[in-house]
Amino acid sequence: MSNDPIHQFVVQKIVPIEIGGIDFSFTNASLFMVATVAAASGFLYFATSQRGLIPGRTQSVAEMSYEFIASMLREGAGSHGMKFFPLVFSLFMFVLTANMLGMFPYFFTVTSQIIVTFALALLVIGTVLVYGFYKHGLHFLQLFVPSGVPPLLLLLVVPIEIISFLSRPISLSVRLFANMLAGHITLKVFAGFVASLGTLGALGVGGAILPLIMTVALTGLEFLVAFLQAYVFAVLTCMYLNDAVHPGGH
């Protein structure tokens, strides 16, 4: 079982809960969602509890992440988009922490579950839709009608725009999910090679060095991917929110 690269994604019940025939058990996935939230908010809370005028090391990190997302959102969605700052910041910190926690051996990766990433993507697109229609009414539909396009071409462009809009939650969720899933599987497979080659005697131990090097390199790469995917998720969220704030302006 320890060599099975898929086993790490199995959701296991810890506290079985069933309400109305639907399974709402507290699982290892739930546990690591709680851990993610606890780690992220605990870090941010204690890092900023000094409220130092001159930041310490941890406070600097908290401030850097704040300003990182703030500038990303301001560039992506303008100053009107800043009202979504708590949402984008929460999404980024949640995804980043979940990805990073997933890098610990034997830890469950929350973001390797398509339903989780899809729910987060739907939250983003839902926010865009609700805010867009609430703020702009039917003018929000201008989003699908780029300005300055000849009317004849609009027949072609509008369906493309609509399809691209509809595919957003899918691409947003699948990108994060697939990256985490594939990375963890690859890592596990190469690590498995090390273990299985290591049992084959002296030649096997020598041969195990190659997958070991690969595993080390891939671990580094996976840390990069873990950060990069959180960043990409946040950047795309900013871009989509820009549509909600300025539907006609692209």
């Binding site: 507290f26 969602m33 709680v34 993610t36 939230v37 929460s90």
Partner: peptide
């Protein structure tokens, strides 16, 4: 597992 994951995601992410 979807129902459970969504429920706990809503609870944890909502709190967060």
């Amino acid at each position: 597992t979807f129902a459970s994951q969504i429920l706990w995601l809503v609870i944890t992410f909502g709190l967060f």
